[in-house]
């Protein structure tokens, strides 16, 4: 493409953005809202996946003992545990230690536990680490069969719930995205249609003197892309601010929740959002100019 042609295109784009300024603002706004929602779902789904992965890779099993088990019996159980295949280390956690840890984890909210007075509902337990995540399931099953063991817990249950939530989020997010994508396409193509309509004479003359369809199409496609770009930049900025703010909240109150670190995650989200915006803009305008090229 020649430099002069590019100059021509850029001038045309800005002339027409100014000409339908209100429609342009409306399009940019729609793109921004749609992409913001899209980005939010993307972030949620990705964080859920990350959480599930984290759980899956955990090789720790918590073995909770029945209340009636005394220290003597506990030592026997410890021996039995060590003999199970794949077990690397076994640590004993008394019910008092468990309570302390729980309080630490609650942080500012530990006053919640005041309601319990001095009673401690937590059982004694063993923290068992396993050499290999693949062995976790069979090992936990064997542990549950031991006398005096109430249950052996690892990430499994939580993970299944997480996967379920992630799946629902994906379906819901995808459906919503589809609807929003159509709404965005519709409003962008309408904006461009106004531009095209205002210039239909010019287009007809261009056709008569032998301009190629792509020469005629480019300024409009670029206008759509610029609308998409502006909208997506707004969406990306809001998303970045929101994620950073949310991350701070999460670190304060739910320290154990493994959020995806802001970088390079936010850069990645920004790129996805901006590209989607420009693609939607380009498609929207290509759709609306098609009819006017038939001369």
């Amino acid at each position: 493409m020649k430099v002069r042609t590019i100059e021509y295109y850029i001038r045309e784009v800005f002339i027409s953005l100014r000409r339908n300024n209100w429609m342009s603002v409306a399009s940019i706004g729609t793109v921004a809202v749609s992409l913001f929602i899209f980005g939010m779902f993307l972030m949620m789904v990705m964080n859920m996946n990350k959480l599930a992965e984290n759980m899956e890779s955990q090789v720790q099993i918590n073995v909770y003992l029945l209340d009636k088990v005394d220290r003597e019996q506990a030592r026997d159980i410890e021996k039995d545990l060590k003999e199970i295949e794949g077990v690397e280390s076994v640590g004993f956690v008394t019910k008092d230690e468990a309570m302390e840890r729980f309080k630490d984890r609650l942080g500012d909210q530990k006053t919640l536990l005041d309601a319990l007075d001095e009673t401690n509902p937590l059982p004694d337990s063993f923290e068992v680490t396993v050499t290999n995540p693949d062995l976790v399931k069979t090992a936990a099953e064997k542990m549950e069969k031991l006398d005096g063991v109430e249950c052996a817990k690892y990430g499994q249950d939580v993970m299944e719930h997480l996967f379920e939530i992630t799946r629902l989020l994906r379906i819901f997010g995808f459906t919503l995205m589809l609807v929003l994508a159509f709404a965005t396409l519709f409003i962008i193509s309408n904006t461009i249609r106004l531009t095209v309509f205002a210039r239909r004479k010019e287009i007809a003359i261009m056709k008569y003197v032998g301009a190629t369809d792509w020469f005629i199409r480019w300024p409009f496609v670029m206008e759509g892309m610029v609308l998409g770009l502006f909208g997506s930049i707004i969406a990306a900025m809001v998303l970045r601010t929101a994620y950073t703010a949310m991350a701070e909240k999460v670190y304060d109150t739910l320290a154990f929740f493994p959020l995806i670190p802001e970088q390079p995650f936010l850069t990645y989200i920004t790129i996805v959002v901006v590209i989607s915006g420009m693609v939607v803009g380009a498609i929207g305008s290509a759709v609306s100019i098609k009819k006017f090229l038939k001369v």
Binding site: V209, F215, I216
Partner: peptide, 11 residues
């Protein structure tokens, strides 16, 4: 000149 411009004739 528009007729030359749109067929990308040399400036």
């Amino acid at each position: 000149s528009f007729a030359m411009q749109v067929i990308e004739a040399p400036r």
